[in-house]
Amino acid sequence: LAATRSALPGAVTLEKLTDSADATSYNNFYEFGTDKAEPARLAHTLKTAPWSVEIDGLVKKPGRMALEDLLKLAPMEERVYRLRCVEGWSMVIPWVGYSLAELIRRVEPLGSARYVEFTSLADPATMPGVRSRVLDSPYVEGLRLDEALHPLTMLAFGMYGEVLPKQNGAPLRLVVPWKYGFKSAKSLVRIRFTERQPATAWGRAAPQEYGFYSNVNPNVDHPRWSQATERRIGEDGLFAKKRKTLLFNGYEAQVASLYAGMDLKVNF
C-alpha cells in the first residue's frame, strides 16, 4: 500500500517499531474471541470485498461509500504512532491512511452534529465472537466531533506498508493515538454524526471502568490496575522494566487543548 511519510507534527515517532509478527498476533478483536491469539487464527473468515461504509446522521451528504472510493479519497500517508492498550501494554505501529477529517469535511456535518459514532461489522456467519455475551454487538465507539476532526485521528487502511491484516481490523479502521486502543474501532461499516454522545460498547458493558473519553492518562487508574506504567511489547525481553505511561500517550502537545478546562478524572 503506497504512502508517503506524514509531515504532520507528532505523526511520526522515532521509537523502535514493534515487530509486525507481534502486532499481527497479539490482538484484541472480540468479534473473533477474547483471547489475544484468536483473531490471528480465526479472522481469515472475514470477507473484506465488497465493502462499503454507510455515512449518515447529521450530514449534508449522507450515503454509502465504497471502499475503492474511500481508498482514493485522500493521499495515503504513513504515520508511526504509539498504541497504548487500556490493559497496560503498548506497541509502536506504522499505519497507512489519512486524517479522518478529510472524509468528514467531504460529507459536510450539519451545525447540530457534535459527536461521531463508529460501528464495526457484526456478522455472526464469519465472526464467531459476535454470538458471545461478552459485549453487545455490533461494536460501537464514539468521538466528540472536534476529536474526530483532529488531524492525528486517522482512518487507516494499512500497516507496515501492507493492506491491514484482517485481525487488525481490515479493511479500514480508526486510529486515535492519544486514547486507549479500544477507542480505535476496527472493520468500520458505519460512521454516523449525532447530537448526543454515542453509547459505546464498553461504556454500556462496564461504565465504571471505561469512560467515553478514555484518554491515555497515567494519573487516572483503571479500577483494577494502575495506568502509571506500560509494557512495551517485544522490548528487551521478559525482565525489562515497564516504562512510564505519558499523559495523552505522549501527544499532549498536539491534543491537550481539546480538553482545556475539563476535569480528566471526572471525564475519564
Binding site: A21, D22, A23, S25, Y26, K36, A37, W89, R231, I233, G234, L238
Partner: peptide, 15 residues
C-alpha cells in the same frame, strides 16, 4: 517456553 521465547508477544502476561 519463556526461556526459548515461545510464549507469544507478551510472555510476562502469559507466565
Amino acid at each position: 517456553a519463556a526461556a526459548t521465547d515461545r510464549l507469544g508477544a507478551n510472555p510476562a502476561e502469559s507466565l
